[in-house]
Amino acid sequence: MDLFKFLNKDSQRSKNVAKERLKLVLIHDRSDLSPRLLEMIKGDMIRVVKEYAEVDEEGLDIKLTRMKRESDGMPMSALVANIPIVKVRENE
């Protein structure tokens, strides 16, 4: 009983709650892009990618994050887009 609870509740641990909240708040803090602008970029990207593939618009995720540049490990802001492709269009 105790063990079950302990394995199951892990994702609800307060540190995970903190981590997720922090990640979200930092996305906004880090970007000079307003949420409105981000929505516009999102719309444009869908439009472009749609010319080549069928995309899952609901599952699309675009955000600003910080990562280390591969060449020299320097931290930098990056716009990361996750666009689930349902089906690639055949060449006409």
């Binding site: 892990d10 641990r13 540190k15 981590k19 922090l22 930092l26 910080r66 931290p75």
Partner: peptide, 19 residues
């Protein structure tokens, strides 16, 4: 607190700040 999952650990913080 880190052990019982009630405090972010060092890896979590490094992961987020990327420094």
């Amino acid at each position: 607190m880190v052990k019982r999952g009630d405090m972010m650990n060092v890896e979590d913080i490094i992961d987020i700040l990327a420094i």
